[in-house]
Write a protein that binds this DNA or RNA. Sequence first.
RNA 1: GCACCCGUAGCUCAAUGGAUAGAGCAACUGACUUCUAAUCAGUAGGUUGGGCGUUCGAGUCGCUCCGGGUGUACCA
Length: 635
Amino acid sequence: MITIQKELRNALYEELKDKYEINREEIQFSIPPLRKFGDISTTIPFVIAKKIGEKPFLIGKQLVEKLSGKIPMISDIKIEGGGFLNFILDREKFLDHILKKREKRPEKTGVKVIVEHTSINPNKSAHIGHIRNSSLGDTLAKALVFLGFDVEVQNYLDDTGIQVADVVWGLLEHDGKSIDEILNMENLPVFLWKRYPYYSSQIAGDEKKSESRNLVHKKIEEKEDPYYSVSSYISEVVVKDHINLMERLNIRYDSLVKESDIIELKLFDEAAKLLKDKNIMYLSEDPEKKGCWVINYKGENIEKIVVRSNGTATYIAKDIAYALWKVGLLGKDFYFTKFFEYNDGKIIHMSGFNESDLDLNYGNGDRVFTVIDVRQSYLQKIISEEVIKPLGEKEKEKEYIHFSYEMVALTPGCVEAMGFELSDEEKNKSYIEVSGRKGIAVSGEELIDKLIEKSRGEILKRNPDLSNDAIDSIARDIAIGALRYYMIKFNSNSVISFDFDDALSFEGDTGPYMQYTIVRINSIFRKMGEPVILQSSPDISILGPGEAELYFDILLQISLIEIQLDYAVEKREISSIASHSYQLCQKLNQYYHQYPVISEKNKELKELRIALLILFRENLSLLFGIMGIPVPERM
RNA sequence: GCACCCGUAGCUCAAUGGAUAGAGCAACUGACUUCUAAUCAGUAGGUUGGGCGUUCGAGUCGCUCCGGGUGUACCA
């Protein structure tokens, strides 16, 4: 890993720490907007100036004098723009440093992090909103792994919810299907995807049917057959469908936790003890909430009901118990069984309640990221601020984080193209909310199929003589690359207004653009034979001025990757990984066009160019791995 | 009502309080006998929704107004 910024930060910190009250994180670096300013810059003089009420320029001047000649890899330091401290690289030393340190990875932190994502209701196949969730969660998890954390990926299954009861009711009561018929149905998740909106509308429009569904729900909870068996069967089949879809997108899980097990193991009773003990949960004195156990949400000064006056728990109770288990504060644990095995033997374990099952070391994270869309903010805030924070006080490292993101919506044009009628008012909206219940949603499978079809066409245009197998494999890679990139390129809190044209685009700011960059480098190496990277410090004076500028620009951008990943995790802004990767590719494509490799006669120059391509490929591949974007053989 | 989010080029979006607000798409001009044109070079396109303030410095922070979205049940 190339990290010049780390060395710079340390040098500056050593110089400043005794003199000013400053911490390491305040020393931030960026690449100046214009190259004439220098290679790397920091605004630390402004920061210090503000603290001690001095002029930034004077502080900067002092720093220049003190630091000149002291930092390896830096040949000159300038103060500009009233206080920007601009460093000029000793390029020869920088390149030498890179060549020696490129294998180094961040050290293990010893901190356990749980990332919960996906968590789709197990009653039908997945839609694009779910794919945004999983793509963000997976990229987050992989960035954390890279940064040295011990990461567990969880997927939570709400198998006792009303949504599952809806489809059980639909199949058994409304359609009158027998158990055998249900067991023999082909592709049940997709059937339910199509059928669920119908069941849902039936229930919504009819009080009797609604009552009947409620009865089914109750019977499932009481484990009464055939309702219970059918409900379990549906959950299992649908979850496997989700797992297989996500596996196609390079997204995997370690553990599945079922809501029914939280109920079965009475985990909330355990949580309730803790909460009552600390007086976090108490009997409300509000006459309207007489007999209810509540938690005071200070943010809005509201008493949130956790246990109803009739003694039953509300939905938030299960979430509280689960959250406490995740951070390891509950004092009670699930048992686990093997649920699924991937092609390469990796296993997913699923929670259970039988003592005869496995006692595995899941849960108990030092940091917990719960990836759920912004509509859950209210609940998540109560959990993190009113439950985890006060209970986790003794254990300083416990951190419960709602990783929030906005929903995926559809453009009105997209909804109409799918065959729905829209009112005039709806037509003028900028987007229409996705609803699995109403059937206004683009299914994950459908989108992937469309992407594959489109990329197949593009491949055939360019490579008419490829075998069908090769085309299949490449089309799949491109489709996945396009989708994964599309799902993380937007800011977390902007609504994606989904449009097929946009999502199916393979030009410009897209996954395939980036894949193309790396494929072309591979193509060069395929033609000239796998190259060997330079070992010793090369003579860089043979690079012309224009080439040198771009060359080191690319290396500097690469050297920011680790800081970039850290930023993405700490600020919960996964899109920054995507945009940094994209910028890198833009620079490389520029370079590729101007400076040939194979035909270059000068041996040293050729070696230098090869070195850049190797370094670029190594680092971009790393980013691809984190984003789950595959590298196609050719394009 | 209260809380949170959004408003930047025709469209979709970037910009970690920092230097001349950047990309892609669409439009227009140019580059394939060349390491793959899914690319590259260029032209055009902006009162960052309005106003006031804080700051050496504001698209970014604060206040306010306008427009849009979401959440806020003894439903899950």
